[in-house]
Nucleic acid binder design. Structure first.
Lengths: 232, 232
DNA sequence: GGAAATGTTCAGCTTCGGCTGAGCTTCGTT
DNA sequence: AACGAAGCTCAGCCGAAGCTGAACATTTCC
């Protein structure tokens, strides 16, 4: 996951915090990232670096995100775009963009953004390096179908449970601290403490990790790991 | 580990004790270190020396560590940052920055800081001089998985045992005094005496060094060494 | 608008790791 | 061989970390 450049991304947002948050964590996930603060810069950089995908805030100081998307597409046939929008659905333009590509509402969780980016790249590049189906031990997770099996038996998970398990599976074999989990799986504006992670790990265990050998391990004082059965 | 400049670091903290502690021990570990006391100086020096990584206290007298990080990145595309933060998670700014790169909470142990610095450099430079998996004799330690094997058999270690073994392995073949071990493996505010080191060496031996040939040796009146089997 | 599902907090309980101190062993010196 | 210093190990205490059930809040979906 980390050692390879998965794709080149252009991140466009005028809020520095969001820009930093996205660019840093996308880099950590192996993407090459360039950032722009407004539409003008976005066009400039896009021309220069020819990104595989653009992450684009709908509200920009100088021009409308849709206008930017339009001009990006004029420039290069079909440039995939992932829009970032405010949560309140009052904006009627949002209806239109539902169709266009894909979008994520603010405040988002990093897991959400990463999942969408991978989905878009999978579609537009037929990229099989980014498999839609994850497997660890006898646990299987299908991103597109949004479904999980343990030993072939389907398991019903709530959205948060699903995101948490997904995060575990993408990082299987790697220790994840509660803070790290909180930062990736929960929305970036979540104010609560890490206790909620404990709760959800508990739920997850109950639903997918009741049988031996156990896959989710607690490392006291460190965090959690999802470990495939043979390697422990 | 010692004979080569691993990387150039900029350490930014207004507390002289922390600054000295870090810069001295980072130099001993082979890094080239420049220090700054506030954000203004940090920007100045960063421009001049182009560090490979910045160790940055979140609370600075003149500006927010976050702001400094932002301006550092503006200056040089992607400048990796390791944040130092206070333990209490009540600071709401922390929520955002946790994600950004990596962070260590005060009071830290030097082992912790060094491990994080190496991890960040490994990621950002694809640096394979700094392997994630250590090996001495038939002892293996995986930092990411936070796991240890002896002769291929997994061993469960507590966090402190793990840090101690890690310190031994990074310094294998080198004699380490109890004071040195205390300074590196325990938090800098630890008040206790060196007896605790004896205890933990004892625990470690029981868990990973029961079989011949023994790897952990006592040098009476001097300290301990982890020595690979052939070279003694 | 109401029911069901999901998300979050909290408190009681359990488990585990960190540390200490005491008693014992080993080592080196005379 | 005898002594003291250094090191080893163990039992036990304490507090921190983690688990889970239940209460409460919020959202979603009919």
């Amino acid at each position: 996951m980390l050692d390879r450049v998965e794709a080149r991304l252009l991140v466009v947002d005028d809020e520095p915090n969001i820009r930093e948050l996205l660019s840093a964590s996308l880099r950590l996930s192996g993407f090459e990232v360039v950032t722009a603060v407004d539409g003008r810069e976005a066009m400039q950089f896009a021309e220069r670096i020819r990104p595989d995908l653009v992450v684009l805030d709908v509200m920009l100081p100088d021009m409308d995100g849709f206008a930017v998307a339009g001009r990006l597409r004029e420039m290069s046939g079909q440039m995939p775009v992932l829009f970032l929008t405010a949560r309140d659905g009052t904006d009627d333009k949002v209806a239109g963009l539902r169709v266009a590509d894909d979008y994520v509402t603010k405040p988002f969780s990093l897991e959400e953004v990463l999942a969408r980016i991978r989905a878009v790249l999978r579609r537009t590049r037929g990229d099989l390096d980014l498999p839609a189906r994850l497997q660890v031990g006898d646990l299987e997770l299908d991103e597109e179908a949004h479904q999980v099996w343990r030993s072939g038996v389907p398991v019903r998970l709530s959205p948060t449970e699903f995101k948490l398990l997904h995060y575990f599976m993408v990082n299987s074999g790697r220790v994840l601290s509660k803070a790290q989990i909180l930062d990736h799986v929960w929305n970036y504006d979540f104010g609560g403490d890490a206790g909620v992670v404990e709760s959800y790990v508990s739920y997850l265990r109950r639903k997918v990790d009741t049988a031996e050998p156990r896959l989710i391990h607690t490392l006291r004082g460190v965090g959690y790991v999802l470990r495939p059965p043979h390697s422990d």
